[in-house]
């Protein structure tokens, strides 16, 4: 009974939603024009990167804060059960992971650099690097992280991107307003922020997996 009601309600809801989308009037504010007019001052030539790191830098700053918060929440939930006994890792898988990792790091670096003028940027680069770390973990070459025993260097990398971004935005307060880059240095500042974000994002995204994993990954 409940099922039938929910399905009927969902159908009506879906119909209304589609109706609203089809009849949607064109927006009174065209942000495309606003973005295109200010591209010259943004310091990059790809509009999505300009929006993410310059025009709407606030969103990105809060986003990395949210990610950090989610990771801290995940660490606080903590493991209760001891890890299961180690399984011997597949030798072929390990070999392939060893071969794949260096090109993946290069791809991550390229994506970071390419973000200035074409699709790419810190998020994509961070996701690729995090995937490499997950691959290494699954093939038994990188042990799972323990929230109770987290080395200082790893903590610095986890929060570094956010702290760097925050410091730059606060420093810009002295020159004008929060997150308003001077047009001449904008490109350099965005690259600096994105580099920090890439490392932190890679560590945080990998951490979301590695803190949850109970697999010791072949390490003692």
């Amino acid at each position: 009974m409940k099922r039938a009601i929910v399905i009927a309600a969902a159908l009506v809801f879906g119909g209304l939603l589609i109706n609203a989308i089809v009849d949607l009037p064109s927006s009174p504010v065209d942000l495309r024009i606003a973005v295109a007019d200010n591209m010259a001052n943004s310091g990059v030539s790809h509009p999505v990167t300009a929006v993410l790191l310059n025009f709407r830098g606030y969103d990105t700053l809060l986003e990395i804060a949210v990610l950090l918060l989610a990771l801290i929440g995940l660490m606080a939930a903590g493991p209760m059960l001891p890890p299961p006994p180690n399984q011997p890792a597949d030798a072929l898988l390990q070999k392939l992971a060893r071969i794949a990792t260096p090109p993946v790091i290069v791809v991550g670096g390229y994506l970071l650099w390419a973000g200035a003028f074409r699709p790419g940027g810190a998020f994509q680069a961070g996701a690729v690097l995090a995937a490499a770390m997950v691959l290494l973990h699954l093939s038994g070459l990188l042990s799972a992280w323990n929230a109770q025993l987290l080395p200082l260097a790893r903590r610095v990398i986890l929060v570094g991107g956010f702290v760097l971004f925050l410091c730059i935005s606060v420093a810009l307060l002295a020159a004008g307003s929060l997150l308003q880059y001077p047009p001449h240095q904008a490109g350099l500042l965005i690259l600096l922020i994105e580099s920090g974000l890439t490392l932190s994002l890679a560590a945080i995204l990998a951490g979301l997996f590695l803190f949850l994993s109970r697999d010791n990954g072949g390490a003692p």
């Binding site: 065209d30 999505v48 709407r56 969103d59 998020f123 994002l201 945080i204 995204l205 997996f209």
Partner: peptide
């Protein structure tokens, strides 16, 4: 295409991943 919603979705995807992990 309007880059602003694209940037929002990019932000949203990453936040969704983190929220799912939590």
């Amino acid at each position: 295409s309007d880059p602003v919603p694209h940037a929002m979705v990019l932000t949203g995807i990453v936040v969704a991943v983190a929220a799912t992990a939590l």
